[in-house]
Structure formats: structure tokens, C-alpha cells
């Protein structure tokens, strides 16, 4: 069963997609299919940093810089309202061993749509 529209999901923003020097975030963060995300209803944000670090910092030089958060219903609305190519987006649970909050956006997301999603992304820095 798909993840409810009421949930928020988190996407890891790493150094290959984010340039801290210029503050530019790459659309390829969401472009493509099977985009990996985490459900904040299962793993709260403060713990998601640790979970992401364990899973995404490969090689170790690839650094987790930020986390982008978006509501699932907002994501679906952006997809269906995308004029150039309305896209029915969903978030599907895909729990992994030791990572129960893992989920994916299975649909193929175009560059144009990825740019729309980026504009609605709530980008967080880790509070230390």
C-alpha cells in the first residue's frame, strides 16, 4: 500500500548534488526512477541523519550535506499539475534490513518535474 499523503518524506542531499560554495542544488536529486527516500513518520528527522550517513556516504568522501523534506500529498500534486507532462507520483514503502523507513518514488521523474519538486523542498541543515 502506498505511503499516505499525510506523511512527510526526506531525501538525502549529498555533495554530488549540492554545491555548498554556490548554494546550487542539482535537479538530478529527483530526476530518474526509483528515487530513494525515508519516511519521517517511522524514523524522525533527528535520527534520519544517522541512518542516511550510514547508507549514503559511500565512498566516505561523499558527504551528506542537507536533508530535503516534502509532504507526500504535495509531491503528488506537483506531479499531477506538471503541465508539460502530468505525472502520477506515489511513494511506496521499501523497508530494508536495519532501515525500516526506506521508501521509493518508483515513477520516472523528468528534469522539468524535478526542478518543480526542488522548489517545494524544505531544505534542512543538521542542528548540532
Amino acid at each position: 500500500m502506498s505511503v499516505s499523503g499525510t506523511e512527510d518524506i526526506a531525501r538525502a542531499i549529498c555533495s554530488d548534488k549540492w554545491d555548498a560554495e554556490t548554494g546550487i542544488l542539482s535537479a538530478s536529486l529527483f530526476k530518474g526512477a526509483e528515487t530513494s527516500v525515508s519516511r519521517l513518520s517511522i524514523t524522525p528527522l533527528e535520527d534520519t541523519w544517522t541512518v542516511f550517513r550510514k547508507n549514503v556516504e559511500k565512498p566516505p568522501e561523499r558527504l551528506l550535506d542537507r536533508i530535503g523534506i516534502i509532504n507526500v500529498q504535495s509531491l503528488m500534486d506537483i506531479g499531477s499539475n506538471f503541465e508539460a507532462n502530468p505525472t502520477r507520483l506515489s511513494v511506496e514503502p521499501d523497508p530494508l534490513d536495519g532501515y525500516p523507513s526506506h521508501a521509493i518514488i518508483p515513477q520516472k521523474i523528468s528534469r522539468g518535474l524535478a526542478n518543480k519538486i526542488l522548489k517545494s523542498l524544505d531544505i534542512r541543515e543538521e542542528v548540532k
Binding site: 554530488d16 526509483e34 565512498p59 561523499r62
Partner: peptide
């Protein structure tokens, strides 16, 4: 950044 990608991403990387 180019040097970073050349040297650190020459093999499979990331969670997927």
C-alpha cells in the same frame, strides 16, 4: 568539483 568526481567517483557509489 571535477577533480572530486574524477578521484572519488570512479567506481560504484552511493546507496543504490
Amino acid at each position: 568539483r571535477w577533480q572530486y568526481f574524477r578521484t572519488c567517483f570512479s567506481d560504484q557509489w552511493g546507496e543504490s
